[in-house]
Nucleic acid binder design. Structure first.
Length: 273
DNA sequence: TTTACTGTTGCAGT
DNA sequence: AACTGCAACAGTAA
């Protein structure tokens, strides 16, 4: 599922549906997805009460007070909630039985998702170690430090934005949208951007991720009944997945190239190097 | 039947 | 330190 808007949408869904619930039991079909002690995960989660649902970048945080569980959905992780009988499905990997009779299920076709159970006082170090950048908000994402970082890098702007260190939350869809909106070619070495272009990238990152949240995220490969998969952001995408279609701004044909191993959509007229 | 591709990240190799 | 390519995995499309 997830870039930041999709994760935030899942967070809101979970907040509405499982906040205050206590975990009665946990079943894990794929132990390797648990990155911290597996024994502790199984032993300590039962009896934990979900006191808050939080998010940092693309990481979902189940806050139990003293303990936290950090869940990353990677490419295809999803949460589903069932009452009574949970259907059999080979891609259901974790089951959390709750005290209201519901079962929260984690589904992940590719098994890339990760789970970390930490004490809350380890949270800051966890994200510091990953060098996770600021949230893409006006308050946290300061233009001045962003500009300084861009001026120090020769990397193409797109992979630089994708690595989460300058700002948290952009993924392959939204980064293409941001660069199109900012009229910046994704291969442009960061330090070669004009100050005006840097400012546009900064501002559009905030604007477009916020729009994504307002629209409830986007659903590309569709699934049903998973939390947070009723978003409409896909209706607002301008270049992602629009290969061969006219640019909404200038009607040039949208191109798809490969950059840093990722499919990259752009308008060759609006986004010059 | 192969091969390439897919909303991500971390690691091994320079 | 900083970069690149690839692996983790499964499904789909060409």
């Amino acid at each position: 599922m997830p870039e930041l808007p999709e994760v935030e949408t899942v967070r809101r869904g979970l907040e509405r549906l499982v906040l205050g619930r206590t975990i009665l039991s946990v079943e894990v079909k794929v132990p390797k997805m648990v990155k911290t002690s597996y024994q502790s995960f199984l032993n300590e989660l039962p009896s934990q009460r979900i006191q808050a649902m939080r998010r940092r970048g693309k990481y979902l945080i189940f806050d139990f007070g003293q303990l936290i569980m950090i869940s990353h959905l990677r490419m295809e992780g999803k949460y589903l909630l069932f009452t009574d009988q949970v259907p059999t499905n080979k891609h259901f990997h974790l089951f959390f039985k709750l005290d209201d009779g519901f079962t929260l299920v984690y589904q992940d076709v590719r098994k890339f998702g990760t789970f970390d159970l930490l004490s809350k006082n380890q949270e800051e170090a966890y994200f510091t170690k990953k060098k996770l950048g600021p949230e893409p908000t006006k308050k946290a994402f300061k233009y001045a430090s962003f500009e300084r970082a861009l001026m120090r890098s020769d990397k193409p702007i797109k992979p630089l934005l994708l690595d989460q260190k300058l700002v948290a939350g952009l993924g392959n869809i939204y980064v293409d949208e941001v660069l199109w909106a900012a009229k910046v070619h994704p291969e442009t070495p960061a330090r070669e951007l004009s100050k005006a272009a840097m400012k546009r990238v900064h501002d559009q990152t905030i604007t477009i991720l916020q729009l994504g949240i307002e629209k409830g995220g986007s659903t590309i490969r569709t699934y049903r009944n998973a939390l947070g998969e009723d978003g409409t952001m896909q209706d607002y995408l301008r270049v992602y997945g629009k290969t061969g279609q006219p640019c909404p701004r200038c009607a040039s044909t949208i191109e798809k190239i490969k950059l840093g191993g990722r499919g990259t959509h752009l308008c060759p007229h609006c986004q010059k190097r």
